[in-house]
Design a protein around this nucleic acid. Structure first.
Lengths: 115, 115
DNA sequence: CGGCATCCCCCGGGATACTG
DNA sequence: CAGTATCCCGGGGGATGCCG
């Protein structure tokens, strides 16, 4: 792994995942396949339309997700993970796994600290 | 993997890694072992003392790195990865690998788009 | 040497309202 | 239904200066 700032690509990958709702959006699309805008919105309690739109546009820009607009009334827009975007799944899984352990680790640390 | 926002731990892991210099700091400590504050600062062209201190404190708070202060003049402070923190290495490597591919992928996308 | 303290700027992101 | 447009706030992060 290259460690020089110019060659280290960790930040680039991080940049794709960062954004308040991106991981959870990606997981929903990975698990549930193609989803409409309103379905995603319903699945993400608390998100605003503005934010959902923004995050989706940014992921689309990176070729992680695909956006399909149907020319009809009422409008219908579907989002799905690209084949390429699927390459992020192992990283998301690893982070989820580590995060789960970390939650327990912190609890243990606090327990010891309180003795 | 849990996908419900309350149970999904991806954001927690992400929270540890996010912060402008955290990945590169962790990689330096992982690769080079124990390092003094000034050594780290020299290794990170462009970082300010304030930022380096802040990022190190946050990582210490999560038990990812260890801070050892030597009571001497001039002061000496050494930082190192904890055994626990070493668990992040696979994730960092996976992100670096993906990021490298992504750089190439974007280049290819731009080439196709320009045709 | 290894920090805090201070000042300041930018933008991520929330709330709300309007539109094709 | 799936967006834009507008307003606004908090905090991440840069620059600089002081201290034990």
């Amino acid at each position: 792994m290259q460690i020089e700032p110019e060659l280290c690509k960790v930040e680039d990958a991080l940049g794709i995942l960062v954004g308040k709702w991106k991981p959870i959006i990606l997981l929903h699309l990975l698990k549930n396949g193609t989803q409409r805008f309103s379905e995603l919105k319903r699945s993400l309690p608390g998100i605003t339309q503005k934010m959902l739109t923004k995050q989706l546009r940014e992921l689309e820009e990176e070729d992680i997700i695909q956006r399909v607009v149907y020319a009809q009334v009422p409008p219908k827009v579907e989002y799905s993970i690209t084949e390429y975007g699927r390459g992020l799944e192992p990283i998301l899984e690893a982070m989820h796994e580590w995060g789960t352990k970390h939650t327990l680790h912190k609890r243990e640390m606090q327990r010891k600290a309180s003795i």
